[in-house]
Amino acid sequence: MKAIRVLVANRPRLMRELVIATISDQPDIEIVGEIPEESGIESAVEQTQPDFLIVALDRQDRLPEFCQGILQNHPQIKIIAIASDRNSTVFYWASLRVQSNQIEASEAGVLNALRGIAQPTARLQ
């Protein structure tokens, strides 16, 4: 079975490392890159062509705009955007247009989203 390829671009560092530690334990999920700075995300997406991008930014209010920008250029990937200080996680994907939905801000929530188990009900944005 083909592993799910994930690029992790979380800020701050601690959350990024903890998310990676969680994902690394999963046999069906492969980490294809770890990006410490927002400026390196776009090129890393180009380079690694992941199935998923897990992202958290220093300025979390920029997440929706940032995710839409990435999806416009790379509509094939799905994004899990973590707002660590608000205990919320949003799943972004593009079909005809960019869509998003809340998912559970937990290990299970993130892993289920990666595996497509908890494919969210579309809410147009």
């Binding site: 601690l14 959350m15 903890l18 998310v19 530690a21 660590s84 205990n87 937990s106 290990e107 993130v110």
Partner: peptide, 13 residues
């Protein structure tokens, strides 16, 4: 921890 993801990840580690 208030942050569930953080709480679960620390516990896992």
């Amino acid at each position: 921890c208030c942050n569930r993801l953080l709480r679960e990840s620390i516990a896992r580690i």
